[in-house]
Amino acid sequence: MTHSKGPARARAAGAKRQRLVEAAADVVHRQGAERTTIADIARAAEVPVGNVYYYFKTKDELVAAALSEHERHLDLLVGDLSRLPGPRERLKGLVEGWVAQRDLAVRYGCPTGTLAAELGKRDQGGLDVEAGRVVRLLLTWVESQFRELGQPEPEGLALTLVGAYQGMSLLANALRDPAVMEREGARLIAWIDSLETG
């Protein structure tokens, strides 16, 4: 009896590609897009560098894949937060999640925010627009929570909350102080608690 090796081979290729995507997100976050090489990503994914080109022709394609991985993580986070009973709890859960990542933020900053800032300095490529799209997904979700809470101007409140996160992440990184995230996260949670339900 003959069995086709096609499905197994396709699964292995898919797993290898996913390892490369996850490695790209991690290495680009730690080193920045400009300093990262295809060889760095191949090494982190434990994939021979020559095999990378089967999946991604250029480093920019890998950076785009890293952004798609950020989006996948955001989707997972939003899915988890959606299980909480109400918008106030979801917003506070979001802040608690940010604070839980304080050691990573101290070392490397916000994964999407730092990448968006770096890509925004490029003259071309369109990756800056893609990074902005991922940030916009978070803003849109946060806005929907403020809207469900009955708050006036939910878009402005979303900008305030996400902007506060970017600021505390940047300051924690610049000062190498995780307590910045802890203190500012506590302030954000108290602020969310103080909002009247509309």
Rank of each mutant, 00 (worst) to 15 (best):
R30P: 05
V21A: 01
L175M: 13
D40S: 05
A65F: 06
G198S: 13
R30Y: 08
R90F: 01
E96D: 10
Q166K: 06
Q31F: 12
A10P: 06
P7N: 10
G86K: 01
M1G: 12
N173S: 11
A10M: 08
V106Y: 02
T160P: 00
R133D: 11
V78I: 15
R122I: 05
A174T: 08
E61P: 11
E182D: 12
H3V: 02
G120K: 10
I41C: 05
D75R: 15
H29T: 14
L139W: 10
Q31C: 13
M181Y: 00
S169Q: 06
F56P: 09
S4T: 06
V78N: 11
K57L: 13
H73C: 14
L175I: 04
Q166Y: 12
V134I: 12
Y55C: 07
E153G: 04
C110Y: 14
G167S: 07
V28W: 14
H3G: 02
V162Y: 11
P154Q: 04
P85T: 04
T58K: 06
A174M: 13
P178Y: 02
R147S: 08
M181E: 05
Q145E: 08
G6M: 07
R30G: 05
H29G: 03
E148W: 04
T37W: 05
Y53E: 14
L20C: 01
T2P: 09
P111Q: 15
L62E: 06
E148L: 02
H3Q: 07
W191R: 10
G93L: 08
D80C: 05
L62C: 07
E155N: 09
E130G: 01
Q101H: 05
M181C: 13
L76W: 14
F146R: 01
V47P: 14
R19W: 00
L170S: 06
A13H: 12
V162P: 11
V180D: 00
N51T: 10
P48K: 05
K16C: 03
T37G: 07
K121M: 04
P178I: 03
Y55I: 06
A39R: 11
L84S: 03
A64I: 04
A131V: 03
P87A: 09
R133K: 13
L157V: 09
A116K: 15
S194A: 15
G86E: 06
E22W: 01
G150V: 01
L157Y: 10
L20V: 00
E34M: 11
A164F: 10
S82D: 15
G93R: 03
E153F: 11
R43P: 01
L77F: 14
N51Q: 13
E196K: 15
Q101G: 03
V135P: 01
G132W: 04
I192T: 06
G50Q: 11
